[in-house]
Computed example of a mutant assay.
Amino acid sequence: MKKLQTEIINDRLVTGQYGNIRFGQWGFECSDRQSFLTLTDQCRDAYQNGDYWQLAEGDWALDYHARQTDPHTLHIRATLAALRDGLLQDAVIRLVFDKSAIQTGEIAGRKFRHTNSDRYRLYPVHIARLTGTDGTIISVTLDRYDGAGRFTPYLYLRDSGDHWIIHARLLPIDPVDHIWLRWANRLFTWSAPDWLARLIWKCPGGKAIFWRLRERLGRHCPEIQAVPLNNLKSGQSLLLEVTCHFR
């Protein structure tokens, strides 16, 4: 019988295995226009003091817990509270699985094979699945969320490098407070002035074309996209709760 084995240190899942399926470095991410907070990789312009984080456009308190609740199930909970008024483009619980023992991924009723497309298959759904080569079904469900009336939940499924990546993600809802229209390359990042970004966003087709364009089209698309941001008032918070079940 297959058994779920995990290494959880300081409430963070470091590594895990179920049969021949390996996974690990799960965590939390959020970002504004300058800073990137992550528990699993290199932060950018984000400074930590215990559970408190200072970003360029906000100060935040992060409460993150991962735990194994039974022989087949993991539960992750994250709360991000604003210590002062601040802008965010997203808040994310991140799950990463080695691709070697996984046959397909499924989201919004569509199945995909790993082609290293690096496409963010983003949908307003509450469940995504991976199917192992041995028939194991991994179900990732978004159980609870609170977007403080300014963010709404999505899941995405992504095939990138040697991994399958699933994010439970809170993204801004209309009316958005800011539009960040940017073009990034190896030499520089150019950001459109706020007035121009909002003008393009409001033009017919502008939102449909540029909204997270690079993410939707994958690695062969230029790094051009429009990213909305919303403001959270001091004292407001975001909540994500995710369950990962193996069977």
Rank of each mutant, 00 (worst) to 15 (best):
F112R: 11
F112Q: 07
F112M: 10
F112I: 11
R113L: 11
R113C: 14
H114C: 07
H114S: 15
T115Q: 06
N116Y: 11
S117I: 12
S117R: 13
D118T: 11
D118H: 13
R119H: 08
R119W: 01
Y120S: 11
Y120R: 14
Y120T: 09
R121L: 01
R121I: 00
L122T: 12
Y123M: 10
Y123E: 08
P124V: 01
P124D: 05
P124E: 01
P124C: 03
V125L: 06
H126G: 13
H126S: 13
A128G: 03
R129S: 06
R129Q: 14
L130A: 00
L130R: 05
T131I: 14
G132Q: 10
T133G: 11
T133Y: 08
G135Q: 12
G135F: 10
T136S: 08
T136Q: 08
T136V: 14
I138A: 05
S139K: 10
V140K: 03
V140L: 03
V140F: 04
R144Q: 04
Y145W: 04
D146Y: 01
G147Y: 03
A148N: 01
G149M: 00
R150E: 04
R150D: 00
R150W: 00
F151E: 01
T152V: 07
P153Y: 02
Y154C: 05
Y154L: 01
Y154F: 12
L155T: 07
L155V: 08
Y156P: 05
L157H: 08
L157V: 07
R158S: 03
R158W: 02
R158M: 11
R158Y: 06
R158I: 01
D159A: 12
D159F: 13
D159H: 10
S160F: 11
S160L: 13
S160A: 15
G161C: 02
G161L: 07
D162Q: 15
D162L: 14
H163W: 09
H163C: 15
H163E: 10
W164T: 15
W164K: 13
I165A: 02
I165W: 05
I165S: 05
I166P: 04
H167P: 07
H167F: 09
A168H: 00
A168Q: 05
R169A: 09
L171V: 11
L171T: 12
I173D: 10
I173S: 10
D174G: 13
D174S: 14
D174C: 09
D174V: 12
D174P: 10
D174M: 14
P175Y: 04
D177L: 01
D177P: 06
D177T: 05
D177F: 05
H178E: 14
H178C: 07
I179V: 15
W180P: 03
W180E: 10
W180N: 09
L181V: 06
L181Y: 06
R182L: 15
W183L: 15
A184L: 12
A184M: 12
A184Q: 12
N185A: 02
N185I: 01
N185K: 03
R186H: 08
R186T: 09
L187I: 11
L187E: 11
F188D: 07
T189K: 02
S191P: 03
S191E: 14
A192L: 00
